[in-house]
């Protein structure tokens, strides 16, 4: 979720009153000029053609059978299990990413050691590698032929592993620029005022990083719930155990049941949107407090 700054201005005829923890301020309803208005119109039209219309086709298909059919699909045991597994593992991976991503960003910004450059590059690789290839090599290393005998194929851990792989860069790359901007003087000041290392961390650094961490977390979650390619070979697709929503949707599609497929897709879409919005709200709160 990209963080937007509110532009606080003075009251006026075309301004709407907004209030926040810092008090009342006035945000203009619209500052669009003719040119930017046109640009917005074109952008929104393109966005509709590319994204909104296809996605509404999915939602429409989901609702085509009415609410009864919608509910029936959702409460199917296999489907419910798939949704729970996907959301659960995605949330778990996001939590892990928040911690480890911040640590990695910290190490990249504040630490110096031979090979640091290499680590910088490696972190971006999950963006660069086609997911099917990622799946192949993860299977090779952490499957039955694992050279270090770590066989997690066909278990939930495999799902976690695939998710962790594709979401690694998000929190790191969100936090890194913020950490770079954060001047050490601020921490120094805290320390010189008697704060311990830990206090300096929790009272000064982490709140400053929180919006970036939240943004990265939102993306990490969103990316994880949609993952498919890297899971296909390593997770085993076992009903109620390692079957994720992408596979469930595919099963429905294969069976000619587009309506049910659309139902599952819509549910995931809505959850992802909610998470994005929730993290955005969280960001705002923290940013305003800080």
């Amino acid at each position: 979720m990209t963080q937007l700054l509110e532009t606080a201005v003075f009251p006026g005829p075309d301004r709407e009153k907004r209030s926040g923890p810092g008090g009342v301020f006035y945000r203009p309803v619209s500052t669009l000029t003719k040119g930017s208005g046109l640009a917005l119109g074109i952008a929104v039209t393109w966005f509709s053609i590319l994204v909104l219309i296809p996605l509404s086709a999915v939602v429409a298909t989901a609702l085509a059978g009415g609410w009864a059919a919608f509910w029936d699909t959702l409460t199917n045991a296999q489907t419910l299990a798939a949704i729970a597994l996907t959301l659960g593992e995605a949330a778990l991976v996001t939590v892990v990413n928040v911690v480890i991503g911040t640590v990695i960003a910290w190490v990249l910004v504040r630490d110096k050691f031979p090979g640091k450059r290499l680590m910088e590059i490696v972190i971006d690789v999950p963006f660069a590698l086609p997911t099917i290839v990622a799946g192949l090599v993860l299977l090779g290393l952490y499957g039955p032929r694992s050279p270090i005998s770590w066989d997690v194929a066909n278990t939930r851990t495999a799902v976690f592993l695939a998710f962790a792989f594709v979401t690694l860069p998000f929190v790191v790359r969100a936090v890194q620029p913020v950490l770079e901007e954060l001047e050490p003087e601020v921490e120094q000041a805290a320390r010189s005022l008697g704060a311990s290392g830990r206090q300096a961390l929790t009272r000064v650094v982490l709140p400053a990083l929180a919006p970036a961490i939240a943004a990265g977390a939102a993306l990490s979650f969103a990316r994880a719930v949609s993952e498919y390619g890297s899971l296909v070979l390593i997770s085993g697709n076992l009903a109620l155990r390692t079957e994720v929503t992408s596979v469930r949707i595919l099963t429905y599609v294969e069976g000619g049941q587009s309506a049910q497929a659309a139902v599952v897709a819509t549910v995931i879409l809505v959850v992802a949107l909610l998470v994005i919005v929730a993290l955005d709200v969280l960001q705002r709160r923290v940013a305003r407090r800080g």
Binding site: M1, L4, V51, P54, V58, A218, L219, Y228, L273
Partner: peptide
């Protein structure tokens, strides 16, 4: 702003569908 981040959360199968 929220919608623009949405494509990231859509599974490729759903995109294709």
């Amino acid at each position: 702003n929220a919608l623009v981040d949405l494509p990231l959360s859509v599974s490729p199968i759903v995109v294709g569908l």
